[in-house]
């Protein structure tokens, strides 16, 4: 779930975006999205810095991305990146996945977010749609412990196999904890 404070910044942009060609493009894309997958599928439609951002539920994410990939009009057939995120304060929506899609032909980008509880971090995989999703999902699993149903090889990718936590979750410290040569913790660190 996006931050509540975000509304201010988006409101400021709205006026500027009215004349913007990207805003018009985004409006078209949004209309198509609504037509294809139903208006109720998407919540929280925003356009921070000209990039259409929609939030949906994890039940729909596979269908939406598959539909976008196959759609001949939108041609969103490039998965730019995906990453996990952790908001420990948002109850039952602690974890999230953020997908960046790109329609190379129309040169439009789309950001899709899903949020789900920490206790049930299960998300459908995209490996059947995009080969590139394989490692990105492994990375998200490694960092956040998000489990991708149907992933062919969901193992840790960057960290050592026997690591027992998911380090990018916000509760875990960054530091190694073993260093000896750095003792000062003053000056606002």
């Amino acid at each position: 779930m996006a931050d509540p404070t975000k509304e201010e910044s988006t409101a400021a942009q709205e006026t500027a975006a009215a004349q913007d060609p990207t805003a018009q493009q985004n409006a078209q894309v949004l209309a198509l999205l609504h037509r294809l997958f139903g208006e109720s599928t998407f919540t929280d439609v925003e356009e921070p810095y000209g990039l259409l951002t929609v939030t949906t539920k994890r039940e729909h994410i596979h269908n939406i991305i598959a539909g976008l990939q196959q759609d001949t009009e939108l041609k969103f057939h490039f998965l730019t990146t995906m990453c996990g995120i952790n908001y420990p304060e948002n109850l039952n929506q602690e974890l999230g996945m953020i997908y960046h899609l790109h329609s190379l032909v129309h040169n439009v980008r789309l950001r899709i977010k899903i949020f789900f509880p920490l206790a049930d971090p299960v998300v459908p995989t995209l490996t059947d749609l995009y080969a590139t999703a394989n490692w990105m999902e492994r990375e998200a699993y490694d960092f956040f412990g998000i489990i991708f149903m149907g992933h062919p090889n969901l193992r840790r990718i960057l960290n050592v196999e026997d690591m027992d936590y998911h380090p990018m979750r916000r509760q875990y410290p960054l530091e190694d904890g073993t260093r000896e040569d750095k003792t000062d913790l003053f000056f606002g660190r």
Binding site: R58, E59, H62, V123, P124, T127, D128, M149, G150, P152
Partner: peptide
């Protein structure tokens, strides 16, 4: 749609 249903066949395609 349930998550698991949505995923039916994913494995198959890759396999």
């Amino acid at each position: 749609m349930a998550v698991n249903d949505a995923l039916a066949g994913t494995h198959k395609i890759i396999q």
